[in-house]
Design a protein around this nucleic acid. Sequence first.
DNA 1: GCAAAAGTGTTGTGTCTACACCCATGT
DNA 2: ACATGGGTGTAGACACAACACTTTTGC
Lengths: 226, 226
Amino acid sequence: MTAQPAQSTIAVVLQVRDGRLQALVWQRAREPQSGRWALPGGTLAAGESLEQSIRRHLAAKVDVQELSHLEQLETAVDGAASAGWQVTTAYLGLVPTHLDPAIPADTRWHPLEALPPLAFDNGATIERGRDRLQAKLSYTNLGFALAPPEFTISELRAIYVAALGHAVSATNLQRVLLRRGVLETTGERREPGPSGGRPAALFRFRTRTLAITDQFAVLRPQRAGE
Amino acid sequence: MTAQPAQSTIAVVLQVRDGRLQALVWQRAREPQSGRWALPGGTLAAGESLEQSIRRHLAAKVDVQELSHLEQLETAVDGAASAGWQVTTAYLGLVPTHLDPAIPADTRWHPLEALPPLAFDNGATIERGRDRLQAKLSYTNLGFALAPPEFTISELRAIYVAALGHAVSATNLQRVLLRRGVLETTGERREPGPSGGRPAALFRFRTRTLAITDQFAVLRPQRAGE
DNA sequence: GCAAAAGTGTTGTGTCTACACCCATGT
DNA sequence: ACATGGGTGTAGACACAACACTTTTGC
């Protein structure tokens, strides 16, 4: 047996900022890939789990408290990494809109439609993270991880539009999420702005942990099925 | 930096056998966990990808040609592994019903409802594999990976019943899969047995690579959406 | 003719989209 | 009064489950 590969973790951290879905990346100052932008992460330490590892590395970039959701994406061998033999496990992390983490000088938020030159396979990894987010917005309550604690339907709609990249009807968004029991009203309302308009009711997510709300129900068990 | 962990791959290989979903496991002859049953796999070699690695290790157990589908499940650090610091990436592999791979003496198929004592966390890994299979049977064409090249609806129904663990109506199975364009008829038919009955039409999967057939369509783009 | 197995017709239900309309506020 | 933004009523499209019924075979 030869030597072992280095094990590292990286994370695609996404947040809706300025009405666009953006990813947290930092600019490499040294070789390899000096000057290119990369996803935050680092090597695995003895005695820690993969999730502990990525949380520890992210702590250097964003306050870990501010991550509303974290899940594993995929693991791959870094083929032609000039840095040597490397196995990398990627995570998806989400930050809600009401937070604006303090980030180091080498780190930036970049809109997914306008990413700078990325190191390694990080571009593909970011796409996978976005795909996962978009899919789960449809059949889970994952919206809680992007939204603030309370919000109007209009605000929530803007978040969904940014994350999904296509128009979303406020009417239907409200109805789908209420019917499924994902949202509940707080009873309070937001006063209208200077230009008037009816006050908007405030809503919150009923639970802020991931739950499947739309059992892709086809071929579901029959009446008295086993 | 301390030493690196060992990187290994394992696979949950599933097949419908005797009307039940079964997993391929082998019995460990040595410590650690001597006598317990484990998922096939092994350590990563230099220069190979994770998928290449698990295919190479599986080749010792089943003919790799017989795997109709292979996808990554999850990566975890083997916490209290007496064998030392270890990172393990799990895969899900599927074998269609018409094949019966030759397997070594230490290896067995075991029905998922009656698994022997398993080593490490392999029990949880098998469950994750089954959950993934069951979910994807609902919203993808993954049935192709369990079914033979041609089959009657009754035969396909038996496979779905075994994999899903609940009753499935042949009528609705046929309609759902035809409506989605997952199945097509071959034009041929199967002659009835000695007890009579109408001859059954033969079907095949239109494509035998994974495709999503039921876009969890909620919140889909609007009419002229961006 | 009768049993067995396969397949179709048809009805009802629930979820979703679309769009018209009504409501509550500021100026 | 009217503009602005929020919310509801309602009709149509669609996919699905359930079940009755018809078709095609062997005996």
